[in-house]
C-alpha cells in the first residue's frame, strides 16, 4: 500500500463517512439536498448522526427503514428477541425467512442493505440498569420503541441523566402516542410518574394492534429524530401527540416539566439507574427476562 492510499484510508475509516459526497450519495440524497432546510450541510448532519433505537418491533421497523434511508450514519438497534411469525403482521423490517433470527441482527442487516452509508450496530441483548448509560452515551438521539414499562422508565431515566433527547412512541389497538422528551422540557415521568400495576395494561398480544398503526407512530418518531439531527422545525417537546386510528384524528396536548419530577425535577432523587423490574412491581420471572 503506497503512502497516499494509506493516508486516504486513515482520513476516511470505513465506519465514518467521508466529509464530501460521492456521485452515488449526491443521487441517493438529492431529494433531501434540494430542500432548503436540509441541503448538503443538513445531509452531512444526518450522515454524522448517531441514533439508538430501543426495540426492533412494530415501531422500530419504520424507524430503522426511514432513518437508514435518510442516511443517518450510525444506527444502534437494541432488541433481545427473535422474530416470530406473529410479529410479521406489523413489524415490516422482518421477513418470513427471518423467523427465529435475532430481531436486532435482522433489522441491522435491513438497514445496511437499504443504505451502505449506514453503520448499523445490533445489540441483541436487553438494555439494563447496568449497561444503559454506557450504550446510550454513544448516541445523539434515543428512540423509545419498546413495549414494556421497565424499559420505558429505564430509557427515560438514562436519557435524562445523560442529557439526551428521547423520542417516545407507544401503540395500543387503534391508539398511538408520540412525544419528544427534550432535556429540560419534561420527561416520561412528568407524564406518568408511576408505572401501572402489573397486568393492568394489556400487551399487544392481549389487546391486539392494527398492523399499520405502529407504522404511523414509528414514522412520526422518525420525522422527529430527523428534525432533531437537523436542528430544524419544532419538535414535539412539551406536546403529546395522540392518534386515534379508528376516527383518524390527531390531538395535540401540552405538558410542562414537573419541578417535582424525581428524575428531571429541581431536586431529583433518582441520580442513577434503579432496579426497574422492582419499580414496576415485576420480578424477573414474571417478565421472562
Amino acid at each position: 500500500m503506497d503512502k497516499k492510499s494509506s493516508t486516504r484510508q486513515q482520513a476516511t475509516p470505513p465506519e465514518r463517512p467521508a466529509r464530501t459526497f460521492d456521485e452515488d450519495q449526491m443521487q441517493r440524497y438529492s431529494r433531501h439536498i434540494v430542500l432548503p432546510e436540509i441541503g448538503g450541510i443538513g445531509q452531512r448532519s444526518l450522515l454524522d448522526g448517531k441514533v439508538l433505537i430501543v426495540g426492533a418491533g412494530g415501531l422500530g421497523s419504520p424507524l430503522v427503514l426511514y432513518l437508514a434511508a435518510a442516511g443517518v450514519g450510525r444506527l444502534g438497534i437494541v432488541d433481545s428477541d427473535v422474530v416470530e411469525l406473529s410479529n410479521l403482521q406489523r413489524q415490516v423490517v422482518h421477513r418470513t425467512a427471518d423467523v427465529g433470527r435475532a430481531k436486532a441482527e435482522v433489522a441491522a442487516e435491513a438497514a445496511r442493505l437499504l443504505n451502505p452509508d449506514v453503520v448499523a450496530m445490533p445489540y441483541a441483548e436487553r438494555l439494563t440498569s447496568a449497561n444503559a448509560l454506557g450504550v446510550i452515551a454513544g448516541y445523539d438521539v434515543v428512540v423509545d420503541a419498546s413495549d414494556n414499562f421497565p424499559t420505558r422508565y429505564l430509557v427515560n431515566d438514562a436519557c435524562v441523566l445523560l442529557g439526551k433527547p428521547l423520542v417516545y412512541g407507544a401503540v395500543y389497538r387503534f391508539d398511538g402516542q408520540v412525544s419528544v422528551f427534550a432535556p429540560g422540557q419534561g420527561c416520561y415521568r412528568c407524564l406518568f410518574p408511576r408505572p401501572p400495576e402489573p397486568g393492568m395494561i394489556p400487551s399487544c398480544a392481549e389487546g391486539g394492534v392494527l398492523g399499520a398503526l405502529p407504522g404511523v407512530i414509528g414514522t412520526i418518531q422518525a420525522m422527529e429524530v430527523l428534525k432533531i439531527l437537523l436542528g430544524k422545525g419544532q419538535t414535539l417537546a412539551g406536546r403529546l401527540l395522540a392518534f386515534d386510528g379508528l376516527s383518524t384524528e390527531f390531538r395535540e396536548l401540552s405538558y410542562v416539566r414537573d419541578p417535582d419530577c424525581p428524575v428531571c425535577g429541581d431536586r431529583p432523587s433518582v441520580t442513577e439507574p434503579i432496579d426497574y423490574e422492582a419499580f414496576c412491581g415485576l420480578g424477573a420471572a414474571a417478565t421472562g427476562r
Binding site: 432488541d79 410479529n87 420503541a145 398480544a205
Partner: peptide, 16 residues
C-alpha cells in the same frame, strides 16, 4: 376532557 392511560405497546416484546 381527554384521558389517557399509559400505553405499553410498540416493540420487541409485543407477543410475550
Amino acid at each position: 376532557v381527554g384521558v389517557f392511560p399509559q400505553v405499553g405497546g410498540g416493540g420487541p416484546d409485543a407477543d410475550r
